[in-house]
Amino acid sequence: MSGASRLVLGSARWALVARPDRTLLAATVAAALDTGITRFDTARAYSPPGRAGEGERLLGQALGSHMRAGRARIATKGGHWRRPDGSFAVDARPATLRSHVEASLSALGIERIDRYLLHWPDPAVPLAESVGALADLRAAGLVDEIGVCNVDVAQVEAAHAAGPVAVVQNRLAYLGPDDPVLARCVALGLEYEAYSSLGGPDGPGRMEELVRGEPRVTALAARLGATGVQLALAWLLAQGTAVVPVLGAGRPRSVRASAAAASLTLGGDDLALLDEVRPRPETATA
């Protein structure tokens, strides 16, 4: 993969609100497709309280014929959902995962899901059992690829041993902690999708502060014609071809700006500088 095809547009931003702007959503999805982004991420848990699967329905409607014609690929997640009272539940038993896959197929309006991930490991269910259930759903033709989210290194090993896992989705950002799972994914040949790729809601603002406050980064941004957000995404992409940032952009302008980061080239000295000035929070454990 190269360019914007190495990016995924996530849907949590608009799916968790009570009254999403469907016109804005459609325009954002169209902008993503125009930039070359063809991969989209959602989850059963991305919904307002009492409206299970709403995020999947919204994304399926926005993509419409693009998805059915194979011009867009959908990833969704299950084993985790939002209760009517707003709290979240985890249940990764095989029967629950099957029911979630069937519900996702209905919500998205498709017959086969491109990529299906276990959203969170269930401490009450062996991970190998959950992954085995996903492998069975893949063998049944309901999903094309399977993966896991929010896992540590030992869980990646267990998942990889239990079934044909293709992807791991964990939190990783320039402004966040390192994740030892990334190196293990590279060793195993797994794709690593980095969600919360700007470091949280305050990430864009913090990146712009870094650009303004560090003269060498100011000069780097000026030389590349890049914003702080674009530098953060370019740094992620430079961590290796296995890394695929998941964007949280909710507007066409934001999508286009984020997609432009895929065309930036950071040299060795640029990366050394960004690593030197990068905040150093503790290493992630999941």
Rank of each mutant, 00 (worst) to 15 (best):
L25M: 13
I74H: 05
I74D: 00
Q61H: 13
V8Y: 02
A221D: 02
V246I: 10
G147S: 09
M1G: 09
G176D: 07
T218Y: 10
G3W: 10
D179M: 09
D269K: 11
L175G: 03
A284I: 08
G64F: 00
A4F: 03
P20G: 15
R83W: 11
R6C: 01
A261F: 11
A69T: 07
A249N: 13
G267R: 08
G55K: 04
G163M: 10
L117N: 09
A259H: 09
P245C: 03
R280L: 09
Q155H: 06
V217A: 07
E209L: 14
A234V: 05
A140H: 07
L108A: 02
R212H: 13
D269N: 08
A124G: 12
V277I: 14
I37C: 06
P252W: 09
L117H: 15
L108K: 01
A135R: 12
L182D: 08
E191T: 14
R212W: 09
A234T: 01
A154E: 11
G86A: 12
V29W: 00
Y116L: 10
A139M: 07
A194L: 03
W235E: 03
G10Y: 07
D122S: 12
G205I: 05
R68F: 00
S130G: 13
G141A: 06
A69R: 04
A69P: 01
T28D: 01
V168C: 11
L63N: 08
E145R: 15
A238C: 08
A232W: 04
A261V: 02
V17F: 06
A30C: 10
R51F: 07
S2H: 10
P177C: 02
V277C: 07
R280C: 13
A27S: 05
R112H: 07
R19H: 15
T42A: 00
